[in-house]
Amino acid sequence: MKNVSLRSRTVADIDSQVVKILKGLGNPEPPVDLRVVRELLKLDQGYYSTTDDSLLRETFSRLKVAGLQVLLRPTLLRDAVRSLSLKALYLPDQKRILLDKDLPILKHRWNEAHEIGHDIIPWHEGMMLGDTKQTLSPTCHEMMEAEANYAAGQLLFLGTRFSEEAAASAPNIEAVKKLSKDFGNTVTSTLWRLVEHGHAGRPMVALVTGHPHRGRREAAFDPAAPCRYCVESPAFRERFGHLTEIDLFGTVVGYCGAQRGGSLGQTETILSDRNRDGHVFSFETFYNRHEALTLGFWLRPHVPVRPAWSPAAASF
């Protein structure tokens, strides 16, 4: 699944909301404390569990002013949580965020920031409380999720602060790990951020997949959809967006080893742009024992090596 491109006006509107929050916090140093963000926005936080019916029922008992449909059919929210594999919920009429307590704590940070994103985007409240064909459409839902993800990234990576620090070093997995530690976010979300905002104007791409080696793939691996996420920088989408996830995954398979964790390998490869001109990219893949993280970035134009001319060769 490829990342969604937002309109420039939408980006500007969300940026202005995040700037207000960061100013309200005194432009903090990384990592940003989401507890302080919730206090500033007067947001409440709670937990639910997809495996504990008693906790789900307790959650429902506290929904005193939630949507009428949920009050009349309390199993609706429970079924949605389970069938859609929701990781967090935002209840705009209660100013309340609910996190799935069964997920690893490290993932709570991004999920919480994502729901904060829904809260600070002015047009999301009306759409989330509505029940029209537009708000229920997959396209609308996808766009709202992309907008909330963008807001979460701006908040967790402190606006332009991340871009400035990322641009100061060469793009590679080690740089991603360091930035992940500095900003207190997962390596996966940091890799995503680096590709979208770390080196403006440079074609970059990231893949989040299962283990790419044929001997270590999961039983549910689908060769027609090999990537959980495919993140393209604006420059990559413009010049190389015609390349499919299958094309890119094939490049990764070509150099990755079967290691159980850590670096799976790296290589330089040639990708053709929309004009069929070749370009040299560096690719490297790291496996954290849960998912494989691949970073590919542009190095230089590819100049084909032509054989030297000689009289002897010309005689043939």
Rank of each mutant, 00 (worst) to 15 (best):
R214T: 14
R289T: 14
T244D: 04
T209M: 03
F240T: 07
P212D: 06
R260W: 10
P226Y: 13
R216Q: 03
A219C: 00
R289I: 05
S282E: 13
A224H: 15
H302K: 00
F221N: 00
R300C: 00
F283M: 07
A220L: 08
E238W: 04
L271Q: 11
A235N: 08
G278W: 03
L295G: 01
C227L: 12
V231Y: 09
G265Q: 11
G198M: 09
R228M: 14
D222T: 07
R289N: 08
Q259I: 12
G198V: 07
F240R: 07
R274A: 14
L243H: 11
S233C: 10
E232G: 02
V252I: 11
A258L: 03
R300M: 01
H213F: 09
V208F: 12
S263G: 08
F281L: 01
Y255I: 03
P234V: 04
R214I: 13
E291F: 05
T251V: 15
W298G: 02
F283Q: 06
T269N: 06
C256M: 11
D222G: 06
Q259T: 14
C230G: 12
R214M: 14
H199W: 05
Y287R: 13
P203Y: 03
S233T: 12
D222I: 03
M204H: 05
S282K: 11
L264M: 06
H242M: 03
T285I: 02
R289F: 04
H197L: 15
C256T: 13
V303Q: 10
P226G: 01
A219H: 08
P301I: 00
H213E: 07
D273I: 01
P226S: 02
Y229I: 03
V208E: 14
E268H: 02
G262V: 08
A235E: 14
W298E: 10
R228Y: 15
V208H: 09
G261C: 12
